[in-house]
């Protein structure tokens, strides 16, 4: 109020050109600075939201960590142009990926992992890091077999397609043999992803035969957990030091498996592979517990 009176008095006494100009200047500065602040605020809020990639958007090989990538990528599309397989596309305004930045969707077109990595070579700014010269070291994402209920190998079939198409076959995806507790006499060969070798190219997700892929590739931070920094794996330490670090341990007998179901037989076979153990698996499982499964009572 006070300032209002002041300015009113001033304008009534002498509306000098200087004061008019000053008022105009202050007005325009306030409006423009307000606009500038709004822009900065809006952009800041946006960038916080966009710092995390949506789950199905993968960056090209060699992409810097997302926060650095968004600082470096000028959205020129040169990587898109030099991709021989039209894998990459630029995000449009309104898509959840930062406007104009390159990404690909594994289920649509996966990365073919070119040996010469033309997209990285094309990048003028270093948003795609030229230190990546071996495409097998790319970390575009990480595959995860997310749907154990639909994956045909989990159902006991030998689909294996994701394993077969993997460009880093037997390193990034292996088939791990597991006992099939449902039939109790078959194996399940489960596609298993290894994060140290998976490049995130997306060929597994692209080729999954199901209408909706059971194996999917995610940006690494979504698909990968992390152990606390101080954790050590005993078996790794043991291998490194050529023996246990805490000396020989007393082997304790495993108890509590009396009358176990067939599904547990495998566990027992591992823990007690010798001597009297074979008696346990031969015990027929209680029919009530495996009513859904077929049980011929045949045992190897």
């Amino acid at each position: 109020m006070d300032t209002g009176k002041n300015s009113a008095r001033k304008s009534s006494t002498a509306a000098s050109p200087a004061s008019v100009a000053r008022r105009k200047f202050i007005n325009s500065v306030a409006a423009a600075a307000g606009g500038g602040c709004l822009l900065a605020l809006g952009a800041g809020l946006y960038s916080r939201q966009a710092a995390a990639l949506p789950a199905q958007a993968l960056r090209p090989p060699g992409a810097l960590p997302e926060a650095d990538f968004l600082a470096a990528c000028v959205r020129c599309g040169l990587c898109v142009r030099d991709c021989p397989y039209d894998t990459l596309k630029l995000s449009d305004l309104g898509e959840p990926v930062a406007t104009g930045t390159p990404y690909f969707t594994a289920r649509k077109i996966a990365c073919e992992m070119c040996d010469d990595i033309p997209c990285v070579k094309a990048c003028p700014t270093g948003a795609l890091d030229r230190q990546l010269t071996d495409i097998n070291k790319a970390q575009m994402g990480l595959a995860a077999l997310v749907d154990h209920e639909s994956c045909l190998n989990f159902l006991g079939l030998r689909c294996d397609v994701c394993y077969r198409v993997c460009p880093v076959i037997d390193k990034a995806i292996t088939l791990e043999t597991h006992h099939n507790p449902r039939s109790d006499r078959h194996a399940m060969l489960l596609p298993t992803v290894h994060s140290d070798a998976c490049t995130g190219c997306g060929k597994c997700e692209k080729s999954c035969v199901l209408p909706e892929a059971a194996i999917k590739v995610f940006p690494r931070q979504l698909a990968q957990g992390a152990l606390p920094a101080h954790y050590r794996k005993s078996w790794e330490e043991k291998a490194r030091h050529g023996g246990s670090l805490i000396g020989e341990q007393v082997e304790m007998p495993a108890r509590g498996f009396e009358g176990s179901t067939a599904g547990r037989a495998a566990t027992e076979a591992v823990t007690a592979p010798t001597g009297a153990a074979p008696a346990a698996p031969s015990v027929p499982p209680p029919p009530a517990k495996t009513a859904a499964g077929i049980n011929s009572r045949w045992k190897p």
Partner: peptide
Amino acid sequence: LLGGLLLAAAATGTLAWEW
């Protein structure tokens, strides 16, 4: 706005204006 977009780039560490 020119100042604002440079400020936004500095504050967010991203090319915010390109959004």
